[in-house]
C-alpha cells in the first residue's frame, strides 16, 4: 500500500494521525540506521537500542522536518547525534583517527578481526569487515556515501562540515580502507581481481 509512496507522502500521512504509516519509514530505513549505529557502536545490542531510539526521536520530531533536505539526510543527522550522545554517556572515545586513544581502539579492533579473517565468506562481508576496522568517522563517511545514497553536500549536513572537507575525508577514508583490505584480506582481494 505504501511501497510506491515517497517519504514526504508517508510523513504527511503520519502527521495527519496515521501512526501505522510510520512502520513503512522504519522498514525502509532500519538497515541504514542500524548500519550507521553499528559503525560507531561496537556492541550489536547497544546499536540496536540506539537505532530504536533514533526512530522514536525522529517520530516525535517529525513535525520539525520541513522537507528542505532529503528525509534520509535528516534521519542520519539524528542518527549521528544519538550515537554521539550514547557514546558520551558510556564515556567511550568517538573521535577521529588523529586521536591516540582511537588509534589504540582501532588497533584493538584489528587484532580482534585478524582471528575472523577465515570466516570471511564473501567479498561483501570482507568489505564490511574492513570498514569495521576503520575509525568511526571514516566508516560513517564511507557508509553515508556508498550505502546511504547521500551526496557530498548532504553528508556535509549530517556531519556539520563543508562539502570540500567531506570530499577530503572521503578520499582519505577510501585510502585507509584500501590499505586495510590490502593488509588483512590481500588473498581475497587478489582472488576477486583474478575472477
Amino acid at each position: 500500500m505504501f511501497t510506491g509512496l515517497t517519504d514526504t507522502e508517508i510523513i504527511s500521512r503520519v502527521l495527519k494521525g496515521d501512526q501505522q504509516a510510520y512502520a513503512h519509514i522504519v522498514e525502509r530505513y532500519k538497515n541504514y540506521v542500524f548500519t550507521l549505529a553499528m559503525r560507531m557502536i561496537e556492541s550489536r545490542e547497544d546499536a540496536e537500542e540506539v537505532a530504536q531510539d533514533i526512530f522514536i526521536k525522529a517520530y516525535r520530531s517529525l513535525a520539525d522536518f520541513r522537507g528542505e533536505s532529503k528525509f534520509s539526510t535528516w534521519l542520519y543527522t539524528i542518527a549521528r547525534t544519538s550515537c554521539i550522545t550514547f557514546l558520551r554517556k558510556k564515556k567511550l572515545e568517538t573521535v577521529s583517527i588523529e586521536n591516540e586513544k582511537t588509534l589504540i581502539q582501532v588497533e584493538n579492533r584489528e587484532s580482534g578481526f585478524k582471528a575472523n579473517v577465515v570466516e570471511v565468506k564473501s567479498k561483501h562481508a570482507m568489505v564490511n569487515q574492513a570498514i569495521k576496522m576503520l575509525s568511526p568517522d571514516d566508516a560513517q563517511v564511507i557508509t553515508l556515501f556508498y550505502k546511504g545514497e547521500q551526496t557530498l553536500e548532504e553528508i556535509g549536513l549530517v556531519l556539520g562540515m563543508e562539502p570540500n572537507t567531506v570530499k577530503v575525508k572521503l578520499h582519505r577514508a577510501r585510502q585507509r580502507l584500501r590499505e586495510k583490505m590490502e593488509k588483512h584480506f590481500s588473498h581475497e582481494v587478489h582472488d576477486i581481481q583474478s575472477e
Binding site: K30, N31, Y32, F34, T35, M38, A47, E48, A51, K123, H124, A125, M126, V127, N128, I131, I142, Y146, K147, R174, L177, M181, I192
Partner: peptide, 11 residues
Amino acid sequence: LMMGSELQEPS
C-alpha cells in the same frame, strides 16, 4: 567493492 558492501540488519 564498496558499492557492494552489505547493510547490516537488526533483529
